Computed example of a mutant assay.
Amino acid sequence: MRLTLVYGALLLLSGGGLVALVYFLVRESLYDRITRAVTGWVPALRLGEVPEGAVTSSPGPAATVAPPFSGCGSGSDCAVTRNGLSGAVEQATLNRLLTVSLVALALFALVSLVLAWWLAGRVLRPVGVIAETARRLSGENLHQRIALAGPPGELKRLADTFDEMLDRIEQLVSAQQRFAANAAHELRTPLAVQRAAAEIGLADPDPAQVARIRGKLLEVAGDSERLIEGLLLLSAADQGVERAEPVDLGRTVEEAVAGLAGEAERHEVTVAVDAAPLPVTGDPVLLHHLVENLVANAVRHNVPGGTVTVTAGPAGLVVRNTGPAVPPDVVPQLFEPFRRLKEREHKPGSGAGLGLSIVASITRAHGWTVAAEANAGGGLTVRVRP
Rank of each mutant, 00 (worst) to 15 (best):
V257K: 07
A256L: 10
A256T: 10
G259E: 15
A237E: 02
A236S: 12
E245K: 11
Q239R: 12
L249T: 09
V253T: 09
E245Q: 15
Q239F: 00
E245R: 14
A237Y: 04
Q239Y: 00
V257W: 00
R243V: 03
E229H: 06
A256E: 11
A237Q: 05
L231K: 05
T252M: 12
V257P: 05
G240C: 08
L233M: 09
A236P: 01
A236T: 04
A244H: 05
V247P: 13
L232I: 11
A236E: 07
E255R: 13
G240F: 08
L234A: 10
D238N: 06
L249N: 08
L232V: 12
V257C: 03
L231W: 07
E229I: 05
P246T: 07
G230K: 01
L233N: 09
R251F: 07
L232F: 01
E229Q: 12
G259C: 07
A256G: 09
G259D: 14
R251Q: 15
A258T: 01
T252Y: 03
S235T: 09
V253H: 02
L232K: 08
G250W: 14
L231I: 12
A237K: 04
A258P: 04
D238L: 00
L249P: 11
L231R: 10
A237C: 04
A256Y: 05
R243D: 14
D238K: 00
D248G: 05
T252R: 14
E245L: 09
A237T: 02
V257Y: 00
R251H: 11
D238T: 00
E255I: 11
A237L: 01
S235H: 13
L232H: 04
Q239S: 13
R251K: 14
G230P: 02
D248H: 12
V247H: 13
G230Q: 03
T252C: 12
A237M: 01
D248I: 12
V257D: 09
T252P: 04
L231S: 07
L249R: 14
A237P: 03
V253R: 02
V241W: 07
V253S: 03
P246M: 10
E255L: 15
E245H: 09
A258R: 06
D238F: 00
R243K: 13
D248F: 06
A244I: 10
L231V: 06
L231C: 08
A244F: 11
L231H: 08
L233K: 08
V247Y: 09
R251A: 14
P246Q: 13
P246F: 13
V241L: 10
E254Y: 02
G230Y: 00
D238G: 04
V253F: 03
L234Y: 06
R251I: 15
E245T: 06
V257S: 08
S235L: 06
G230E: 03
E255N: 11
S235D: 14
T252W: 01
L234T: 03
L234D: 05
E242H: 13
A258C: 04
G240L: 08
S235Y: 03
Q239V: 01
G250S: 09
E245F: 02
V257Q: 05
E254Q: 13
E229P: 02
D238I: 00
A244S: 15
R251V: 15
P246H: 11
D248K: 12
V257G: 10
V241E: 09
